[in-house]
Design a binder for these strands. Structure first.
Lengths: 114, 114
DNA sequence: TGGTTCTATTTAGACAGACTTGGTAGCATT
DNA sequence: AATGCTACCAAGTCTGTCTAAATAGAACCA
């Protein structure tokens, strides 16, 4: 089954990350797993793409991050927990609209009289 | 109205070009116009993107090109006419399938419980 | 005659963003 | 002690779309 190539994700990856976070806060690795789980076996993001995307989203004020307080509970690598800000939720709504237009326009051409 | 950015087109532009040519042979500029016409005002390809894409498609054997025979008819800049090869038609079919999967997977995540 | 606009192709270089690679580090399993 | 899984990060590569400019014929206007 043909995989979804990184090029095709360009300009959509941040939208995917925002959508993943709309299900609730998560740390980076968990976002990766959420997307992988919903990726129907053809979507495989890499850390090298995700973390820069998270930094961009954080800088833009769309997500907020904090180090997990591991006073009690798990022992393991430290985690940074990301969550949508109000601004990020609005951004996700805009991006959903934009996604629909993208699909409508490109899809309209690709599927024309096929 | 928000435009479709070049980044989002990455990995899809060649598919658009193949789809445009499935309506019949055309020269570069005409492909641009076809896509512009179907772009609902938000899709604007540039020559600097189209011609390299055409060269890639030609090299891959998906399109065939020839200089227009202007023995009679129009006088103006010379044109290169592009048409789908049999291989290109098969490629378009594959890419349509791939497009549907892409929309299904990414759309499924983006639209999840929205 | 020159100026502008539209058609049409070509190429050089800039750029953004997803990628690969490799590193750190803790814990669990073998 | 070695491997594998979790978890994060940095540096550099790649690629394809973009900007921008050059070239050039034809049509139109003044």
């Amino acid at each position: 089954m043909s995989q979804i190539d990184g090029n095709e994700l360009r300009g959509h990856l941040e939208t995917l990350v925002l959508a993943a976070l709309s299900a609730g806060e998560a740390h980076g690795y968990e976002i990766l797993q959420r997307l992988e789980a919903r990726g129907e076996g053809v979507l495989h993001l890499k850390e090298g793409s995700l973390y820069p995307a998270l930094y961009r989203l954080e800088e833009a004020g769309h997500v907020r991050a904090h180090w997990q307080d591991d006073a009690e509970g798990r022992r393991g690598p430290r985690r940074r927990i990301y969550q949508l800000t109000r601004k990020g939720k609005a951004e996700l709504a805009r991006r959903r609209e934009h996604w629909r237009r993208f699909v409508s326009v490109v899809g309209g051409i690709v599927e024309a009289s096929s």
